[in-house]
């Protein structure tokens, strides 16, 4: 159970390891709070969907399982969408279409089909929370880097001084790819042993 939880946080981290569901990760990560909000929204949808899928796994006929999963996921996504619109309008304006897009986020369907539909309820919850929070910390890290360099702020607070030159590229799509690529590289450097002298002729 603990292993299932940690797996999503690090070992099979959806962003840095599986490189899955990166559409939203690249699009909304221009400011730290966007990363946190998107991460929590996805964690909520993922956990609720995994619970239901795991409970219903023996009732749902295998031939219609994908439509069933999609209905479940879509329902929870719409709930998040409505509540965000009602209670966090400022955040909703920034995140806009990316909240409804959680429906087609491959992480959710990946865990529903690949894990929750085969495992016990407890393990499914642990896995969903691990994956969701793994996604959340990964995109929050990307957001923080992009926010500091792109806007000179951290969670909206100016930290780089008044004369700081904004790195415009960090707020644009290429910046998202660059930051993510560099972070994946750093993660690999930490976890992998360096390969020595493998030049080929």
């Amino acid at each position: 159970m603990v292993k299932d939880f940690v797996n999503g946080l690090w070992g099979e981290n959806p962003i840095f390891r599986a490189v899955i569901g990166i559409c939203s990760a690249l699009a909304v990560t221009t400011a730290g709070q966007n990363g946190i909000a998107m991460g929590l929204a996805l964690t909520f949808v993922l956990t609720c969907s995994s619970i239901l899928v795991s409970i219903l796994k023996n009732i749902i006929p295998s031939k219609v399982r994908i439509p069933c999963y999609i209905i479940v996921i879509a329902t929870f996504t719409t709930i998040v969408d409505l509540f965000m619109k009602a209670y966090f309008p400022a955040l909703y304006q920034v995140m806009g279409i990316f909240i409804p897009l959680i429906v087609v986020n491959c992480i959710v369907l990946w865990r529903a089909e690949g894990f929750a539909s085969k495992m016990s309820l407890i393990r499914s919850i642990a896995d969903a929370l691990g994956m969701g929070l793994g996604y959340a910390w990964a995109i929050t890290l990307i957001s923080i880097v992009r926010e500091i360099l792109g806007s000179g702020t951290l969670f909206g607070i100016h930290i780089m001084g008044a004369n700081f030159t904004h790195w415009v590229i960090m707020l644009l799509p290429p910046g998202a790819f660059l930051v993510m690529g560099i972070l994946v590289g750093i993660m690999n450097m930490i976890t992998r042993k360096p390969v020595k002298n493998t030049h080929c002729h």
Binding site: L56, I60, P61, V64, T75, T78, I79, K85, A86, Y87
Partner: peptide, 23 residues
């Protein structure tokens, strides 16, 4: 099964819509 899940989803959504719409 499909109809039951859809109905349940519909009911849940209708409820959340009622709660959030005025807000």
């Amino acid at each position: 099964v499909l109809v039951a899940i859809s109905l349940a989803a519909g009911a849940l959504l209708a409820f959340s819509y009622e709660v959030t719409n005025p807000k």
